[in-house]
Design a protein around this nucleic acid. Structure first.
Length: 488
RNA sequence: GGCCCCAUCGUCUAGUCAGGCCUAGGACACCAGGUUUUCAUCCUGGCGACGGGGGUUCAAAUCCCCCUGGGGUCACCA
């Protein structure tokens, strides 16, 4: 049996799309489970659109996700180089040999002529396709014109017949060759095109399985024919269902954020991103929604991949994020949330380190209240405001003002608080205050709403005695005093 | 439009390949209760689907055909 080798071959032409991430995850998991190799190859055949920056983003993004490649442009490997633009030599030789064997031919048609043909076909409501103008050209003439320096592209000659794909998720799919154009393998400038290099490089890198998005299904017969022409055994193919937007069309920027970077910036935990992506087109057992990446690797099989497209459900993604956050331990969550706090200018990295316990306590109180890391800073804003300038949100202030004796109640509470042992825990205080409220003949909201407003300016949130402890008694008392004035 | 793919709750899906265990299971969302100092968490319950029509069969969500619907693709992009 030949070695199991899979690859992901992204083109570095933009942000790291979630679809790429999912395809990478599926390929990687498949290889990992079976002891195969996972290869990263940069498909930069489009020199004008490819950028180094994008390549860097892909390498960083996929690495962040946790998929590790055994061979790639950054780590090298036995089949280097792993950047297609650096493999031109092999491509050129193959094109020439295909020309010699009659599987390909020179096409001297100008882009202008091709455009005219296409326009005429469209006007006649025909399917646009190459009209085969140069297909039957005499070999000698072709050679003569080439020698004379006339520019030409190289087209692959599609023979008569049909091709059947044995797709691992879709079964057999047959294409009549009449439907396939004599496609261009090499442009007039000599550079090879995708359908050509992808086959050439997959052969060179001994790729055994090609798992990619469904949009590539119709390319597959072209590639299969090329494998045949070159005399190589093709890999096994599997076409993954597309990830769809709310509009049920291929997920694109129109329907929302599509790049990995967007979700990282929005504070989705890595585990949630991975988990969610795994659920797009695949399910563990239909019952278990939450699982880690090791479990995914353990259970993933290409045969169990869904055929129908999967609509990207942001609500479920968000829920998965929230669930992941709730299950983290506080130290870990603190670390994840710290960059967002720093970015918001609330604390510096040093301050976070110096006040580690305080910070973790701050985080612990929000663990069940945030769905995304990015939601943390706005929720703890009051803890970074001046005691006499806490931002009162409308709802909080309105709630506080409902209570007639609010100013007096706050005053009496302040007195009560001053009388408590300064080292008393928040838990003990919370218990004690209930008795006090009863003694005072108050209802809970009559104290808690004005108090919460004075302390945090918010209508809801963590336990108030937790707030007091976080603030420190002095600051808490200052806020109550300021609140008495502001709520008068 | 041609070709190709697909079709279970609004969404992600289990069940389909090996027809009966399915009066179709889980999750998100939504609704209603409960817990709670608020918010949130959490718990309980509810709503909710085999696109339609023909077959095959004792029996079909599962097999076959047609229709309908959705998607992909038709570049000297990948």
């Amino acid at each position: 049996m030949t070695d199991l080798r899979v690859r992901i071959a992204p083109s570095p032409t933009g942000a790291v799309h979630l679809g790429l991430c999912r395809t990478a995850l599926f390929n990687w998991a498949y290889a990992k489970k079976r002891g195969g190799k996972f290869i990263l190859r940069i498909e930069d055949t489009d020199r004008t659109r490819s950028t180094e920056e994008s390549e860097r983003a892909i390498v960083e993004g996929l690495r962040w996700l946790g998929v590790q490649w055994d061979e790639g442009p950054d780590v090298g490997g036995p089949h280097a180089p792993y950047r297609q633009s650096e493999r031109a030599e092999g491509h050129g030789k193959q094109a020439v040999s295909l020309l010699g064997s009659g599987h390909a031919y020179r096409c001297f048609c100008t882009p202008e002529r091709l455009a005219e043909v296409r326009e005429a076909q469209e006007a006649a409501k025909e399917t646009p396709r190459y009209d085969g103008h140069c297909r039957g050209m005499d070999g000698a003439e072709s050679q003569r014109r080439a020698d004379a320096g006339e520019p030409f592209a190289i087209r692959f000659l599609i023979p008569e017949g049909s091709t059947t794909i044995h797709d691992l998720v879709r079964g057999e799919v047959t294409f009549d060759h009449k439907e396939i154009d004599d496609w261009i393998m090499a442009r007039r400038d000599g550079t090879p095109t995708y359908n050509f290099v992808v086959v050439s490089d997959d052969v060179a890198m001994e790729i055994s399985h090609v798992f990619r998005g469904e949009e590539h299904l119709v390319n597959t017969p072209k590639q299969l024919l090329l494998y045949q022409a070159m005399g190589y055994e093709p890999p096994r193919f599997a076409h993954l269902p597309l990830m769809l937007g709310k509009d049920r069309k291929k997920l694109s920027k129109r329907s929302g954020d599509t790049s990995l970077g967007d979700y990282i910036a929005n504070g989705y935990p890595k585990a949630a991103i991975v988990n969610f992506l795994c659920l797009q087109g695949w399910a563990l057992d239909g019952e278990t929604e939450v699982f880690d990446v090791d479990t995914f690797v353990e259970h993933f099989d290409i045969e169990n991949v869904q055929k129908a497209g999967a609509v990207f459900d942001i609500d479920k993604f968000r829920w998965l994020s929230a669930d992941t956050i709730r299950r983290m331990d506080v130290a870990e969550l603190s670390q994840e949330v710290a960059p967002f706090v720093i970015q918001a200018g609330q604390m510096t990295a040093d301050e976070i380190a110096d006040r580690r316990d305080w910070f973790q306590r701050l985080v612990a109180g929000e663990q069940e209240r945030i769905d995304l890391f990015s939601e943390f800073p706005p929720r703890v804003r009051p803890f970074f405001e001046a005691d006499d300038a806490v931002t009162f949100e409308d709802q909080a202030e309105a709630g506080a003002r409902k209570h007639e004796g609010r100013v007096e109640t706050l005053g009496r509470f302040a007195d009560w608080l001053r009388g408590r042992d300064a080292s008393e825990s928040a838990e003990a205080m919370a218990a004690a205050v209930k008795d006090w409220v009863k003694e005072e003949g108050l209802k809970f909201p009559a104290l808690f709403q004005p108090l919460r407003c004075a302390l945090t300016g918010m209508a809801g949130g963590r336990d108030l005695f937790d707030c007091i402890e976080l603030l420190g008694r002095e600051s808490a008392l200052a806020r109550i005093e300021a609140g008495q004035k502001r709520l008068a």
